[in-house]
Simulated assay, not measured.
Amino acid sequence: MQKRFRKLAKISLVLVYLVIIAGAVVRMTGSGMGCPDWPKCFGHYIPPTDVSELQWLPNTFFKKGQVIIVDETLQVAISDLTTSKNFTPENWEPYTKHDYAKFNVAHTWIEYINRLFGALAGLATLALAFYSFAFIKTKKTWVFLSWLVVFGMGFQAWLGATVVYSVLEPAKITVHMVMALVIVAMLLYIIHMTKTKEEETVNQKVAIFPLAVITLLLTLFQIVLGTQVRQLVDHQIDVVGELSKDLWLSTIDWRFYMHRTFSLVVLILNILLAQRIYKHQLDFRKINWIMGFIVLEIVTGMTMYYLEFPFATQPLHLVLASLLFGVQFYLVMEAFSSRKRYKSL
């Protein structure tokens, strides 16, 4: 039963990472407003595939809540209705969350797929929470954390709605990303707690916990700073256009230079951490993944800067950062539990 619970937690983690990947693709393609309402998409559970589905037509049936575009504004059907020969404003009310009223079929379906992954991840975490009741007498912490993940997913969904309502306000996008990492951390904690005795890390005499925590915090700082840099780039794209990639970094400020400098700090500290683990032959194999992700992060960052943002480098950079955070967080938990067991001897 414990193995099944742990397996379900791993499935939930994979689905959450798929949401992060889908979200990165949404940002890369500029599809964040592909569905201008929430949780539906233009008032549909399955979004339209052609702009004609969003246009007013005479003698046509519209369901309550269905959205159409009229004079570059979104109009919502007040009730089920069949249109007459002329548009009747009394049957419609303007969408008041924002004034964005554009349709791009590619953007719409990219954003819709992102939401589908979010729904799947939500269902998986909900299943995990209900399954946790099997341990309510012996492992109350598992039950508490499982339901905390569910509430976290609910809060994340609400954040997603506020991002849409704000027409992709930069600060809200950053909070949305950080919350995704919080959910990743909670699921990893559940996975770590449910390890069997055979999977436990051997007690270590050399402490790496403090340095591991520092590297984790620096990575989190780098991610937040990276989202700020990305927002600068997005703003510049709005100014100069998507085709003028050579100008995307023409107005960079201190945040970019700090982000670039701290990447070297993160690399050096993790090299020191890896050196300590390798030197004393400690049983923390996650360090290999950490070093690999850091190298790839630096390579994708340099590629974007020197080669003018090749295709897919932006979402890849973000996804690698989230994977790096997850592996570092797990290493921190292993280092802490190992130190705790050693002190109890």
Rank of each mutant, 00 (worst) to 15 (best):
A24F: 10
F151E: 03
T96D: 08
R230T: 15
L128T: 06
S263C: 09
L216T: 14
H176M: 02
I208Q: 12
Y330M: 03
P47H: 02
K40W: 02
I237H: 00
E200R: 15
L187E: 04
K137P: 02
V265R: 03
M153Y: 05
F221E: 10
L81P: 01
T96R: 15
K137Y: 09
V327D: 01
W158Q: 01
C35T: 07
V16M: 12
A9H: 05
D253G: 05
Y45C: 01
G118S: 08
T60Y: 06
F151D: 04
R27T: 09
M302Y: 15
Y257H: 13
I290N: 15
A127S: 09
L216H: 07
T261A: 13
G241H: 09
V76H: 06
A161S: 10
R6H: 04
N270H: 12
L220W: 10
V143E: 04
S12V: 08
T88Q: 14
K7R: 13
F62G: 05
G30C: 00
A312V: 12
F133E: 02
A321P: 01
Q231H: 12
F293T: 09
V175T: 08
G30H: 00
F144A: 15
V182W: 01
R27W: 08
S338L: 03
G43E: 00
W254M: 11
R255E: 11
L54T: 05
H98D: 06
L267R: 02
V239R: 05
V332D: 06
E198S: 14
S166A: 03
S338P: 03
K140Q: 09
R276I: 15
Y165G: 00
D234S: 07
W38K: 00
N104S: 09
I69K: 03
N114C: 05
L345R: 12
W38Q: 00
P210F: 13
V105C: 07
I78P: 02
A129T: 03
S338E: 03
G241V: 06
Q2D: 07
I290H: 10
A106T: 14
Y330R: 02
G23W: 08
I298Y: 11
I113V: 13
T73L: 07
A161V: 01
L181A: 06
V164Q: 00
V19K: 00
L243F: 03
F221M: 15
N104K: 12
A9D: 04
Y189H: 07
